[in-house]
Structure formats: structure tokens, C-alpha cells
Design a protein around this nucleic acid. Structure first.
Length: 466
RNA sequence: GGUGACGUACCCAAGUGGCUAAGGGAGCGGUCUGCAAAACCGCGAUUCACCGGUUCAAAUCCGGUCGUCACCUCCA
């Protein structure tokens, strides 16, 4: 089966076809850098990482752009509270965000454009909308998008103008406007004293951009007026993405994005994890509890991205155990040293690969894709006595291949220091002399150094624990 | 009021018309071991929230009921 995705636009799975052969352009909505991200946010970023990694695995040439929202009400308020310049404040949280991504082994995007570096592009876009009379300026100088003038408004989210509750986005003074206009959203916010020193003097007047316009302006700058995939959390489908479509398509007359992929929420006790509910964990919180980054990554990516995921510490512990199983498998392969070959081993690998790929092709259906990896491991474990070194090498390479996509397995350094090797030998000597007190002491000592020993028929084997 | 998602074993989670309902965790039994730990092997839902209906055949389709969550205001 070929690659297919559930497209929010059509509310159905569609087989994937890139605009340009062999190349895929992806835009993902990044964080608003006003605070540390929580792991609910990170779930979405890791879903996107999984997507990008898989597309690369399929040999597509991927261009990935993730924006940073570094000017909005929250960043302005936060900077003011800390008495910092906006730039200083947002830089701090941007860096924290990048650290989190790195810790969780997400591949860096090709571009991380920040809103404040693209004011010119946004102004140009807004000017086009004004010229087309789709946008209008109000008395205070703010500029709004008239959603009634974009006939397809609501196509993505099903939120048609008539069904929206009143109470527009960012409307300054509600009373002056009719009901319909209240549903319009802001493109450019005229300067307000609350904004302090955050403003730009532009052809549109003194002020700052609305939230939605940045993604239209920046995605089109880096990826073109039409591109392949746009991702984000499901809460961004409305109003953010709906508004992006309206702005972009109204301006260019072209289809903005071909595939919209949205991830479901991470919940805690069946409720959305959110800062306002105070039920969130940051990555730092979890690391301080000694959870391993890869166990956290595994927890966040192995539930299908459109399925709400109920988060718990128990979940990470389960992931930890699952990863241990893979690690144990990988570690044990190095003890297969014989020259023999297992007839048909290629076929076993090929079946596992096909299982993995066919499920990932199906809208990144990772659960059964991983199941085929675990099936492979069980099968090979059962065959170990019949495998030779070259087979083991192939099995290891296969796990490495899968890891290009999932990015959760860690391959240990297969070399031990002389000192450690000597201790293992010393312990074996003690065991031969039935000096178990001494051998147990050495085992404890090595475990404290991160080396786990296992006494098997073939001799003592070791494995690194961290 | 409008829009949408979800309810599968003790926990996590696939499967959306038809072979024995994947896989992981936990548990139990076994193998190995000086012992322990780890690993490996085996076992585990006659049943898919509930009630009707369609069908030769349904967890899967249709209707209804109950329960949970989210969006419509910044939110991954």
C-alpha cells in the first residue's frame, strides 16, 4: 500500500501525492515562546518529527519549516512582568524549546523563522488583502479579515460563519460593529499602550501583527504559495489554520496546503493537559523524576497521533520496559560469533520491514508497525542458536534502520574498558573458586558502574544499563 | 445551541464486514543460574460500553441509549 494520510480538509484518508516529484514541503506550527513547553505540546512536535523522519526514510527530500511565535499578548505580558526586552525574554524560551527537542531526539527543522523577523512579509500580505478589499481597517487603525468575503471559510474545521458564537478574536471595542463583523479576525493590531515598546512603524501604521498572519507569510516565503503538508495540534485547526487558509488563498487565489495533519491531545486524567488547568508536566519535571528521555519519547510517539493519549507516569514506566526489551535484544546480538548462516534470514527481515512500512504508510499507524518489530525480535530470539555473526549483523542493521524512523533505540558502545574487563575476569575466577561472596561483590560494584552481568551457558555476558 | 473525537483484557494499544480479536506492560507457570537479577519460552479477552436492527457473517455497517473528552476565546 502506498503512503496515505488522514487529511483534516477532506475528513478522510487520502493517498499521498507530493506536488513536486520526490520532494515534500512541510510546515509545522511551532511554540509561542512565552514559557516552557509541556509534554502535551511535545507530543505534537514528536508526531511531526516522526512524520518527517518517515518521509525521509522513504527517500523524499523534505523541507521542514517550524515557526516561532515571538510576539503576541502572552510574550509581551511575560516580558513586561520580568522587566525584560521582548527579544531577550523570547530567546530564553526558544533556547529552552530547542533543548527539549534535542533531548527527545527530534531532528532539527530546516528553518525556524521567528515572527518578529518577518514583519515586512506580513505587511506585504496584508496590503494585498486590503487591495482586494477582503481586509478592512477600523477607526483605531487595526486591520481585520472579513470572513464573509472568503466563501470557503469553514472548509477545514466545519466552523461556518453562521455557526460561530459571537465574540471575535482580539476585537478592541465590540460595540461599534455589527454581529457579522465581530467574527472577523485581526491581521494587524494598532498600537496600544499595553504593548509598551513592542511595535513596528509600517505602511499599515504603528502596531504589531495578529497571530494568524505570521504562518501564512512565513510558510509562503519558505515553501511557496502552495505546499504539501501543514501540521499542528487539533486545537489549531480552528481558528488558526482556518484563518491561515482564508488569508493565504484570498491573497494568492491558489490552494494553500494539500494535506492538513492534526494531532490529538495529550490528556491527564482524561482532561486536556493545559497550563490553565495546572495539570501539566514539562520535560524538566519528568527528567527530575529520573525518567529517561527515550522512554518519554517512546510514550509520546507510540500511540497513534490522532488518538487522544492519556498521560501517566505508569505509561513511561511501561515504555521503559518495552525499550529494555529491545536493548536486551540488541545487546545479546554481539555474542553471536559463529560463521554459520541461517537459511532464509533475509526473508525474516524483509517480512518485518514490509510489516513496518505497510503500517506506517497507513497514516503513520505506529502501533502495528512496532508490533512487527517486536514480532521480529521474538522470532530472532528463538533462532539465536542457529544464527551466525553475519545474521546478527543484519538483525542489528535492521533495528538501526527502524530507528531512523522512531529514534528511540540506543545502541551501546560495544567496547569495555580494560579495568572493567579485568574485574569481570576476576569475578569469574572467584566463581570458579566458589567464592560467591567475592563474585557477588564484584557484580554489585559493576552494576553501580552501569554494567549489568549475566551468567549464561556461553559464559558471562555484560550489558550497559544506561 | 453548532462542530468533532473517544469507550477493545488488570494497564497501554492495534484491528472498521469473514482465518484462532495484533503488539507492549503487569501477573502467573517454566527454562537457565551457586544464588539473585536479566533474558528466553509458555499461559491469558468465546469477547469488543449497553440495547435493538441489517447480513449467510459485525468489535467492525445502521438506529438509539449511556458515559468521557475537546473545539466554537489564546491554547500543540
Amino acid at each position: 500500500m502506498g503512503l496515505s494520510f488522514y487529511n483534516t480538509l477532506s475528513k478522510s484518508k487520502e493517498s499521498f501525492q507530493s506536488i513536486e516529484e520526490g520532494k515534500i514541503k512541510v510546515y509545522t506550527c511551532g511554540p509561542t515562546v512565552y514559557n516552557y513547553v509541556h509534554i502535551g505540546n511535545l507530543r505534537t512536535f514528536l508526531f511531526e518529527d516522526l512524520l518527517i523522519r518517515y518521509l525521509k526514510y522513504l527517500s523524499y527530500q523534505v523541507t521542514h519549516v517550524m515557526n516561532l511565535t515571538d510576539v503576541d499578548d502572552k510574550t509581551i505580558r511575560g516580558a513586561k512582568e520580568k522587566g525584560q526586552a521582548l527579544k531577550e525574554y523570547t530567546l530564553f524560551y526558544s533556547e529552552a524549546f530547542f533543548r527539549d527537542l534535542k533531548t527527545l531526539n527530534a531532528l532539527p527543522a530546516d528553518f525556524y523563522p521567528a515572527a518578529t523577523n518577518h514583519i515586512k512579509e506580513m505587511v506585504d500580505l496584508i496590503k494585498i488583502l486590503l487591495n482586494k478589499a477582503i481586509a478592512y481597517q477600523t477607526e483605531d487603525g487595526s486591520i481585520y479579515f472579513s470572513i464573509r468575503k472568503f466563501k470557503d471559510y469553514g472548509a477545514l474545521s466545519g466552523m461556518k460563519p453562521d455557526n460561530l458564537l459571537d465574540g471575535a478574536s482580539g476585537r478592541v471595542s465590540n460595540d461599534e460593529y455589527s454581529k457579522e463583523e465581530m467574527k472577523d479576525f485581526v491581521l494587524w493590531k494598532a498600537y496600544d499602550l499595553e504593548d509598551g515598546d513592542v511595535f513596528w512603524e509600517t505602511e499599515l501604521g504603528k502596531g504589531r501583527p495578529g497571530w494568524h498572519i505570521e504562518c501564512s507569510a512565513m510558510s509562503m516565503k519558505y515553501l511557496g504559495e502552495s505546499f504539501d503538508i501543514h501540521c499542528g495540534g487539533i486545537d489549531n485547526a480552528f481558528p488558526h489554520h482556518e484563518n491561515e487558509i482564508a488569508q493565504s488563498e484570498a491573497a494568492t487565489g491558489k490552494k494553500f496546503v494539500h494535506y492538513w495533519l492534526h494531532s490529538a491531545f495529550l490528556n491527564v486524567n482524561s482532561e486536556k493537559m493545559a497550563k490553565s488547568k495546572k495539570n501539566f508536566y514539562t520535560l524538566k519535571d519528568l527528567l527530575e523524576k529520573d525518567f529517561a528521555p527515550m522512554s518519554i519519547r517512546y510514550s509520546l510517539i507510540t500511540t497513534h497521533y490522532r488518538q487522544p493519549l492519556n498521560f501517566s507516569e505508569e505509561l513511561i514506566a511501561q515504555s521503559d520496559a518495552a525499550l529494555k526489551r529491545v536493548k536486551e535484544f540488541v545487546s545479546s546480538l554481539k555474542y553471536i560469533k559463529t560463521e554459520k548462516r541461517f537459511n532464509g534470514f533475509e526473508k525474516i527481515i524483509q517480512e518485518a520491514r514490509e510489516g513496518f512500512v505497510s503500517h506506517m504508510n497507513d497514516d503513520l499507524n505506529i502501533s502495528p508497525a512496532m508490533a512487527s518489530v517486536f514480532d521480529f525480535i521474538r522470532k530472532v530470539n528463538g533462532l539465536k542458536d542457529e544464527l551466525g555473526e553475519k545474521d546478527a549483523r543484519q538483525a542489528l542493521d535492521f533495528i538501526g534502520e527502524i530507528n531512523q524512523v522512531v529514534g528511540v533505540f540506543q545502541f551501546e558502545d560495544e567496547i569495555l574498558e580494560e579495568e572493567i574487563l579485568n574485574l569481570i575476569e576476576e569475578r569469574n575466577q572467584a566463581r570458579r573458586e566458589k567464592n560467591f561472596k567475592k563474585s557477588d561483590e564484584i557484580r554489585e560494584l559493576l552494576l553501580a558502574k552501569g554494567i549489568l552481568l549475566k551468567d549464561t551457558k556461553e559464559g558471562t555476558q555484560w550489558q550497559k544499563t544506561s
